[in-house]
């Protein structure tokens, strides 16, 4: 029972932190998040494909660099670790924007009458708890949401500003 309670607390704290995180991301970069959200809405399958291709590529490169750094001397280790960390940071950034757009879209679809920040919080809570169940949440829903998010972020980079 106490393990279950502990798990619940971990998920609850994580949800709280992530809700604030996505809210801040949406507030600081509203255009970027809006474009990501629009890409998820209009082309989810393409977003997933682009997300998968790019995630695999960058993850392989990062693992290869980290792995190479482990086996090398101090100088080469530093030389390889820096790009590896940069690639990891790039992946984390893409994932952050992607999930911020995803949570906003989920919130909007569940309760369209709410304000945008409430929709973002609602989306984060729903996504966090939906990704918590073992196996289906960990290995299906979360990778899907993450990869669609990454792909939508990349697609959003190529979207043009609407002509005024």
């Amino acid at each position: 029972m106490s393990d279950l309670l502990r798990l619940f607390f971990v998920i609850a704290f994580l949800t709280l932190g992530l809700a604030a995180y996505f809210l801040v991301v949406s507030t600081l970069f509203p255009n970027r998040v809006a474009r990501t959200k629009s890409a998820i809405q209009s082309t989810p399958a393409r977003s997933f494909g682009i997300g998968l291709v790019n995630f695999v590529f960058f993850a392989v490169i990062a693992i290869a660099l980290f792995s190479g750094a482990e086996k090398s001397g101090p100088f080469i280790k530093t030389l390889l670790t820096i790009p590896a960390l940069l690639i990891t940071a790039l992946l984390a950034t893409m994932l952050s924007f992607g999930l911020a757009g995803m949570t906003s879209l989920i919130g909007e679809r569940i309760l369209p009458e709410l304000t945008s920040w409430r929709q973002s919080i609602l989306g984060t809570v729903c996504l966090c708890f939906a990704c918590a169940p073992p196996f289906v949440g960990w290995f299906l829903l979360f990778p899907y949401a993450g990869l669609v998010g990454i792909g939508a972020f990349i697609l959003g980079l190529f979207q043009r500003e609407p002509k005024s």
Binding site: G49, I50, L52, V56
Partner: peptide, 9 residues
């Protein structure tokens, strides 16, 4: 990566 991105983008 190149082919995938080329096709999808």
């Amino acid at each position: 990566w190149l082919v995938g991105n080329g096709l999808l983008l």
